[in-house]
Write a protein that binds this DNA or RNA. Sequence first.
RNA 1: GCCGGCGUAGCUCAGUUUGGUAGAGCAUCGCUUUUGUAAAGCGAUGGUCGCAGGUUCGACUCCUGUCGCCGGCUCCA
Length: 717
Amino acid sequence: MSKPVTITLPDGKTLAFDGPTTGLQVAEKIGARLAKDALGVKVDGELRDLTAPITHDAKVSIVTYKGRDGTISTDALYLVRHSAAHIMAEAIQRVVPEAQLVYGPPLEDKFYYDIKFPDNRPLREGDFAKIEEEMKKIVAEDRKFTRYEQAREACMTRLASEGNKYKVDNAERAIKADPNAALSFYATGEPGKNFEDLCRGPHVPSTGRIGAIKVLSLASSFWHGDENSDRLTRVYGTAFATQAEMDAYFALKEEAAKRDHRVLGKQLHLFHIDEAVGQGLILWTPNGGIVRDQLQRFISEELVKQGYFQVFTPHIGRLELYKTSGHFPYYKESQFAPVIEREALEELSKSGCSCSEMMHRVEGVSARLAATINERTAKQTITPDRVLADDKLIEGFMLKPMNCPHHIKIFNSRAYSYRDLPIRLAEFGTVYRWEQSGELNGMTRVRGFTQDDAHLFCTEDQVAAEVLGCLSLVKIVLGTLNMNNYRVRVGLRDPDGKKYTGTAAQWDKAEAACRDAAKTLGVPFSEEPGEAAFYGPKIDFVVKDVIGREWQLGTVQVDYQLPVRFGLSYTGSDNKPHTPVMIHRAPFGSMERFTGVLIEHFAGAFPTWLSPEQVRVLPISEKTNDYAQKVAATLRAKGIRATVDDGNDRVQGKIKVAAEAKIPYMAIVGPRDAEQGMVSLRIRGVEKDAGAMPLATFADAIAAEVAERRAVLGVKP
RNA sequence: GCCGGCGUAGCUCAGUUUGGUAGAGCAUCGCUUUUGUAAAGCGAUGGUCGCAGGUUCGACUCCUGUCGCCGGCUCCA
């Protein structure tokens, strides 16, 4: 006799079964409609096949495409896409029978299948139409996904006989991960008759449940992501439960493409990247310059309110500075190469110094510096092999990859008492990092960028309040920009990790400070053990833009390490030296990335205060050019960025051009307006004449909107 | 950095398959028009076809290298 099974549903109701049941039976018991719509089942939080046996009491929820609240279930899409990957794999094998399947998981909004194609028959985009045709056939056949398990020995023998080393490897890995796991296969239809794939599942009940399926693109990948391993072809596809949902997905993609800051940056003349200047190096053109300048002024104003001091530091620093901080040569792969002094270089080339010898000498540390650092860090931080005689050392400079060493030197340029702390040093500091060329992307991933950086030097007791202050600044700025949808990630130390500096007590305190500060923000936050830097915990900001994409912007990091390495101290109330704690913070990451994200967030239609051109005056004909100039002059006198389009076009043409430039306000002026001292307004986003208003009222209203940095256009006649 | 695709006027693109040194729209400039809410008409200017080699009587077109961009992979103190 089998044991009775009690199923608890999401609403708390329970269903009793005499013995093992399945998700399908549960659904049938609830209602025929639900059974028909069911795609899978969640048993105690685990996603499973609808027909998988449920043998013990469990909390069960039936996965349908749309949840009770009408939103689309991510679990359903997971099932749909995972199943779609099998269908695509089968279709591809019909088109290219020699293709060896490797691995095909679902992703957030699509899926892929890594496949090894024979060298003489690679997959091309031209094959997509044929593959999609086959996929649609498979969907139309509405074949059941049938799961069966096979004994390990038989399974391995079978896979080996099929000659696909990748699947053999997958099976071996599955066994390694869980020695008790059963190896399962899924047949798209009947085992032994239809396409089968080694797969853990789960899947939708049958191929007909996939409403829309499409091959997206090709890319290359490596087996296990190892570039020394086999090169595979990654075929991307996507699938949805309905065609309407797929259409909406592509509409969103199109919307995202329209907002692409690289496209808008060109159209709106915001920035330029020039081959001759270099990859990943942003040239801020006049329009982009205005946006950046306005952002910086705004941030600076807030910093003054919060007691920061503005500092300025050069773009380079001596190698010794970075040897002290530990950034060189440890991170040399991601830095621009050092600038070696001319005389040293000439001497080296004369003496026939080899490249590796030269690098060794560039990276060398003097005995004095090595002794100092080793003493301060109380261990052999600088190993003896890096210590060189002074006449062997090669001096040079580095483009700064971060601002902290410079700011540390400013802190250390005078003596501080505990009464002086915290000291908050802020700088829009430009740094240079050697990002891999394949990673560069418009403004969001660059090689030279200006951080909205600051370093706070405080006592341990002040850490919590200072972290909180950093977060409140972020909240003010993001709120002003109407970016209220963001979350924070709190990076904590790995409980087992040994790489961390500082004491456990310090860490506990700092982590508590970060956690508490994050809580006060009133936004979602997650704790991520193991994500801390080796020198302290950190808080990352992840902002969601208006179309739902997430962007990692800046961080706040607590640092116990650098103050030690640089031997920083302040005098405590006990008249003894104490080591300060440092907080690094760049809440928006960089002006480049932040501006890039803002461009996409606003789709180029900036709030008035950020708009490069705030008002364009459009005279109806030459006859009102003079009045138009007067209008613009009046606005400019109020600090408003206004221009006149006195070209020979008709007003319709001028409106089109100004609208495409996404200018917030158009002041259209003809004889009527000139006589009465009015302007006829057209507001961005309102596709009609908004009516006339007196020039003086208009100027004051716009000036107020700008002064308050309002996020939405509010001037109306 | 790796794999694939792509580089033609300031911008968006055609022409390359089948080698005979380029074409459109927008922008710019000029003329006509004097205009009331998303482009009036006509004309002109503008390109050593990313760069460097090679093949050829002849290369935007074919080959090699190189630089850059895009999509992925990998990476991001």
